[in-house]
Structures are given as structure tokens and as C-alpha cells.
């Protein structure tokens, strides 16, 4: 299922003195089975863009095409449910959405809203809680007795249980410990690889962009200022710095080494690529 933005602009609180530009004239396509990363400094419109992916916000002008549904300013709020099932959305600080008495019920909430039976939903809850790396015992616990990181995982499980085709993630690992962060990211990657899930990820971690994404959108002040593969985006460190964005660790290190006379072509994005290109230059054995 492709999602296409056609000259989408969005204004918050249009028609009041509090009106604020959320998106300006964004046109792009998020294609089926892709892994798209959205980067941009804080307030650049990333979350606003995401909320157009399942019609939580409707464009002030332009149109968003989600599969075969076209969303414009005139679209009414009825019959959006099928869309919400297909595009699962994990919000920033998703743990705030938990409300049920037990973890099992909370995870089952989404599937039941979309018509799953109690048994199906319970089975999904059990499956998803393992998938996000929590022990099955938590199913019977209250979500409010868990730690912040565990609550985040439950919330993510709740979205995965809806079995969406597109998974939208707004900084899903912010505030998690490094190990939890890695677990989460590899789990999303696995879903992407094995089930062909389309993933849209907002992140400030350039390493995640380099490691996982195949397409990158760069936002600035509500506008889409650049898009391309991670290699294209990270090829110009000066441009990134000018837009207050960082580099993957390996690329940053390669840049420092270049100042000392080492040569890299193309700029490495991951530590493996860095090692591969560095070893011959320092006369080491071939990197495995």
C-alpha cells in the first residue's frame, strides 16, 4: 500500500491568531514495503507529517492518498476505521495511551475495536507481548505497575496487535536504555524483513537511519527539503550540519580521519563499512 502526498500543506488552528504552519507544500511517496526514516530538528513538522498518514489530520490544502483512499480537506470523519487498522501508529511517549486493568486487555483493545473476537484478541496479546520482549507473566499485571520502558513495549505491542500493513513509529526508542533500544530496532527490522511491513520511522538517531532505512525524508520548518537514500543524504556532512542534523557515528569518525589524510569513497555509513575501508589503509588483514 503506497502513501502519496500531493502538495500537502497543513495549518494548525487555521483562522485564528494562533495559526501555525505545520506543513508546507509537501509532495512525496512512501512506497509499499519501504523503510522510510524522517529526520529534522525539533519542531520541523515530523509528527505533523505522521498524523497525515492515517488521517488523524487532514491537509489544509493538497491531498494524501493512502492505498485507494484519497484524503483532502473536505474528507469527512466517517469510515476512516479501515484506514486506521491498516496504518498502525506508535506515538511519541506511547506509554501515555495505556488505560486497561491488565496488559492483556490493553493489547487486545485495538484488535477488538477492529472486529477481532475475544479469543483472537487474547491470542494476539500473548503473541505480541513476547514479540516486544516481555515475559508472558506481565499479561495479567496492571500496565501501571510496569516500568516506563516496559509500558512503552506494551503500547507498541498494542499497535502491532492490530496487524497493520504500515507501521508508523514516532521516536519509539526515546528514553529506552541502549540494550532495549537495540532490541526494539532489530524487532522492527525483523517485521520489515519477514512480514514485508512498511515502516515509517521518525528518529534523531542517525545510526538507526544508516542501519535500517532505505529512504530518508529531511524536514525543515514544515517543508520537505531533501529526500533520498541514506547514502545520498549523508554524503554532504556540511549541508546536514547547516540544518542542525548529525551524522552516523561511523560517518563522523570517517570525516575526522579524512582530516588526518585517510581517504574514503563512498563515505561509510556503518561501522562495518568503516572497518572495510579503513583496514587496507592501515595495512591490516581483511575485515570479516
Amino acid at each position: 500500500m503506497d502513501i502519496t502526498f500531493d502538495h500537502v500543506s497543513f495549518t494548525y488552528q487555521a483562522g485564528t491568531p494562533f495559526a501555525g504552519e505545520g506543513l508546507r507544500d509537501v509532495s512525496t511517496t512512501i512506497s509499499d514495503h519501504s523503510y522510510t526514516a524522517i529526520i529534522g530538528h525539533t519542531g520541523s513538522g515530523k509528527s505533523t507529517l505522521l498524523q497525515h498518514l492515517n488521517a488523524l489530520l487532514k491537509p489544509t490544502s493538497g491531498s494524501v492518498t493512502i492505498g485507494d483512499r484519497v484524503i483532502t480537506a473536505e474528507t469527512n470523519n466517517k469510515n476512516l476505521k479501515p484506514l486506521r487498522q491498516k496504518v498502525g501508529m506508535v506515538f511519541q511517549f506511547a506509554e501515555n495511551q495505556l488505560f486497561e486493568q491488565t496488559v492483556a486487555k490493553d493489547i487486545a483493545f485495538g484488535p477488538k475495536n477492529f472486529g477481532a473476537s475475544d479469543d483472537e484478541a487474547a491470542a494476539l496479546a500473548k503473541q505480541m507481548v513476547t514479540l516486544v520482549g516481555l515475559p508472558e507473566e506481565v499479561l495479567t499485571q496492571s500496565p501501571f505497575d510496569l516500568s516506563g520502558g516496559q509500558m512503552r513495549r506494551v503500547a507498541i505491542a498494542g499497535v502491532l496487535a492490530m496487524q497493520p500493513q504500515v507501521l508508523v513509529l514516532d521516536e519509539p526508542t526515546a528514553g529506552l536504555d541502549p540494550a532495549g533500544r537495540r532490541d526494539m530496532m532489530t524487532m522492527f527490522e525483523r517485521l520489515h524483513e519477514t512480514q514485508g511491513l512498511t515502516i515509517v520511522l521518525v528518529t534523531h538517531q542517525m545510526d538507526d537511519v544508516a542501519d535500517f532505512a532505505d529512504h530518508v525524508l529531511v524536514m525543515d520548518q514544515g517543508a520537505l527539503i531533501k529526500e533520498g537514500s541514506p547514502r545520498e543524504i549523508f554524503a554532504d556532512p556540511d549541508w546536514l550540519r547547516a540544518h542542525q542534523l548529525g551524522l552516523p557515528k561511523a560517518t563522523a569518525m570517517a570525516e575526522q580521519l579524512m582530516a588526518k589524510g585517510f581517504r574514503f569513497d563512498p563515505l561509510p555509513l556503518t561501522s562495518d563499512e568503516l572497518a572495510d575501508q579503513l583496514l587496507p589503509q592501515i595495512g591490516g588483514a581483511h575485515h570479516e
Partner: peptide, 19 residues
Amino acid sequence: DQTTKIMNAQRARGVDFGS
């Protein structure tokens, strides 16, 4: 703000507010 955010999160999980 928080109300809007939580409403959106639950909408994304299939809740229809006001219907």
C-alpha cells in the same frame, strides 16, 4: 494538549469519539 494527544492515540487504535 495531552487530551488531543491521547485522543489521537486511541483513534489510531480504532476508537470513534462522538459517534
